[in-house]
Simulated scan of single mutants.
Amino acid sequence: MMPVTHKIAAQWCAVGIIAGALLVAFVFYPPHSGWNERLEYGDLATWLTAIGTMGAVVAALFLARKDSAARHEEIDARGLVIASFLFSDCNTSKGLAEKAIAAINGLDVRNQQACNVAAFNSMQLVQKMNFELIEKNLEKVAWLPSRHSWALASFPAMKNDIVVSLATMSAATLPDLIPKYGESSKRLKKMLELLNSFINDYSSRL
């Protein structure tokens, strides 16, 4: 049995041929005499060749479009599978990132003890983030759209950098608190932004 895409392509090819045949009929059998006396149209073989070429081009373009759409659907379906596999861990990490940001948000950097304690508590929250599934399935993470595959693949390294930054902040003295606070806050907010982007794109599809 002929595949649906091939059947439709054949139909379009037939349409092109019929349209060309009608054009030939119109040219060689005009509606009234004299309207095309000064025009030269070539022989019948040339016209038939042109008609066949036109039909072939129409069919080729149609098949190429269908193949491209099919490949896009396949890639999207594979991305949905890996997204569902990683969604729970990312959603949990999002909640931890929000709590970690809240722990250090609005701190008075003149109060060293309060900043050190807040940074330590924030660090403990970040350490609970679990990205092991991402690390073990990086080749499948590549099935996701590039903006998400890049982000998810970077999460393990981002987590380590944030932990180091917060650990440094938890032991920092007053002169170093402001730059360490700014660095830790910026990294946490970037991770949360990337997590939100992934979750928002897939929450309604899973």
Rank of each mutant, 00 (worst) to 15 (best):
G106F: 05
D161I: 07
G55A: 15
L80P: 02
A142P: 00
L166A: 04
L206N: 11
D76E: 14
L206P: 01
A83I: 06
L22W: 02
G79D: 06
H32I: 12
R147D: 12
H72M: 10
S149I: 07
Y202L: 04
S146K: 12
E135C: 10
K94P: 00
E98A: 10
V163N: 05
E139Y: 09
A153T: 14
T5H: 09
S149V: 05
L206Y: 02
S165W: 05
A56D: 05
G106R: 06
I82H: 08
K190R: 12
Q124W: 02
R38C: 02
L80M: 15
L194G: 01
W150G: 06
R65C: 04
A102H: 05
S122Y: 02
A102I: 03
Q11Y: 09
V109N: 08
L86V: 06
A25K: 01
S165C: 14
H32F: 15
L194V: 00
L195Q: 14
E40K: 09
E98H: 07
N111W: 00
A70E: 09
M1A: 14
A100Y: 03
K140G: 00
E40C: 00
A64D: 03
G20H: 06
D108H: 04
F85V: 08
Q127Y: 03
L138E: 13
M191E: 08
A25N: 11
D161G: 15
M2A: 05
W35Y: 10
Q127A: 10
L86N: 05
P156F: 08
L152S: 05
S93D: 09
P3L: 01
A25R: 03
F155P: 06
Q124P: 00
M54I: 13
G106T: 04
S154P: 00
K136S: 11
P3W: 02
L39I: 13
V141K: 06
P179R: 07
K128F: 09
K128A: 12
A153E: 12
D108K: 04
Y41Q: 02
C13H: 14
V81D: 10
F120M: 12
D43P: 09
D43C: 06
T168E: 15
L177T: 01
